[in-house]
Structure formats: C-alpha cells, structure tokens
C-alpha cells in the first residue's frame, strides 16, 4: 500500500561519482538491456527505426556545463535514475497501491499488475526518474535491480545492479546507506556526498560525489623550473656532474 513505511531495515542505493563519470552511457544501455527482459513489462522503443524514436529508459546520462565569470568552463556528466527517496512523493500519490517502498531495503518499486497508468507518480517525482511505457501503459522505473541483487541464479560477486557491474570507470557504487560502515556510507562521508534538490524534501537515498576542483579553474601554478646556473657551468656542467655520480 502506498503509505510509506515508518522506516526501512536497509537503505539500499547508489553513490554516483561525478568526478569520475566520463559520460559513456554504458550504464544506460546495460540497464535497458537487463530490464527489458526482466522485472515487469519490457522497455519498449516506439518508432525504433524511424523519424522519432522514443524508448523507455530507467537511467539516463545528462551533460552539463558549469562556468564562473572569466574562468574556463567545466563539463560534468550526470547519470540519473531513481534515488529511492525516503520520503518518496511518487509513492503517496499513487491511487492504486502499485507504487510502493519496500520495508526491508527501501527500494521503491511499481507493482505493474496494479498500475492503471495514471502517471501521477511521474508528476510527483522531482527528478524525472519514472517513465510511462508507451506500449504497455504501465509506469517503469529503476528497480535497483531487485531481481539481481538477491538472485541466487547469479554468482555472489555479480549480485549488484547491472549499471554498477558494467560501469567502466567505476563511477557507480551500490550498497546499504543504513550501515555506516558500508562502502557507500564511507565514500559519501569522505567525499561529501550530495543530495539532489534537497529543498524538495524527498530525502534521496542515492548520493552524488561532487567533481574535485580543477587546477586550470582554481588557477594553480607550479613554479617554473630554474635553469642550471652559469657559475656551475650551465647545462654542460650539469651533464659532467651527473655523469660523475653514475
């Protein structure tokens, strides 16, 4: 039912490292590939080979440019999927109970058999993490690969989300934020993990690690090298002294 659980035993989610993401879209396609033939209805692609192909994706990578006056601009790739919010508005608005947050791990899911496709949850989500499938008329969203992370048919070390397993740069991390000792809790603590749109009051579980400062923007300069001085024979003198030591 669509009242949120008071609290969840675990808080499973992702840490996404904006300092490391190269914007390769691997997570986007791996997610599509896994989910189109697993949990719930397939992720359709309408007009797949035509003028206006529009498909359902559960994870998308945006690219932003950030600039301060009189400084070089910088570019950040920004992967976005469901943040599995603690105060998930997408859940409470759902009239059918199809949209719910799991009490055991906090994963926010859609029970597609109950979904009437009203789209209200997608409206309620500030992040655009839900997409209605045009062919199936049901709401699709990131499942945090709930059908992978506990799946006994998958080797233990692979029981992570498809997007995490595939990320070539290792910019995506999966874990339990309820456990302060977990990889994700530690990463997020060390690297000042951020909430997206905190003012929306959704309490996102997923955290984003900010890009590290860029030395061309902070204008760090290493002092120039000093030439071998003439007194000591300049460059040739240096050669002799160095050869001595060899």
């Amino acid at each position: 039912m669509t009242s949120l659980p008071q609290s969840t035993e675990k808080k499973l989610g992702l840490v996404i490292d904006l300092d490391t993401c190269v914007g390769c879209h691997a997570c986007v396609i791996s997610c599509k590939e896994w989910n189109t033939s697993n949990y719930g209805a397939p992720l359709s692609d309408m007009d797949a080979y035509g003028a206006n192909p529009v498909g359902t994706f559960l994870n998308r990578v945006h690219t932003f440019e950030v600039k301060q006056d009189d400084k070089p601009a910088q570019v950040t790739h920004f992967p976005k999927s469901c943040l599995h919010c603690e105060d998930a508005p997408c859940v409470t608005v759902c009239p059918t109970g199809a949209s719910y947050k799991r009490v055991e791990d906090g994963i926010v899911l859609v029970n597609e058999n109950n979904c009437i496709g009203c789209g209200l949850c997608a409206w309620a989500c500030p992040y655009g993490a839900r997409e209605m499938d045009a062919a199936e008329g049901v709401m699709k969203k990131c499942t945090l690969c709930v059908d992978r992370i506990y799946n006994e048919n998958i080797p233990q070390e692979d029981r992570v989300p498809s997007c995490v397993r595939t990320c070539p740069a290792g910019a995506r991390h999966f874990g339990d934020f309820a456990d302060p000792q977990s990889n994700v809790s530690i990463l997020s603590a060390e690297r000042a993990g951020m909430d997206m749109m905190p003012e929306q009051g959704t309490k996102p579980v997923n955290k984003y690690l900010p890009p590290r400062p860029k030395s061309d923007i902070t204008s760090d300069i290493t002092p120039a090298l000093t030439a071998q001085s003439a007194e000591t024979g300049g460059f040739l003198g240096w050669i002799d002294r160095t050869l001595e030591k060899l």
Binding site: V66, M194, P210
Partner: peptide, 13 residues
C-alpha cells in the same frame, strides 16, 4: 540544486 553543481558556477545543459 538539481545537479548539485550550483556552487561551482552557472550551470547550463
């Protein structure tokens, strides 16, 4: 706030 990058400068898509 949407990208968390506001502190680094003006953000554009």
């Amino acid at each position: 706030t949407a990208t968390g990058l506001g502190g680094l400068g003006k953000v554009r898509l």
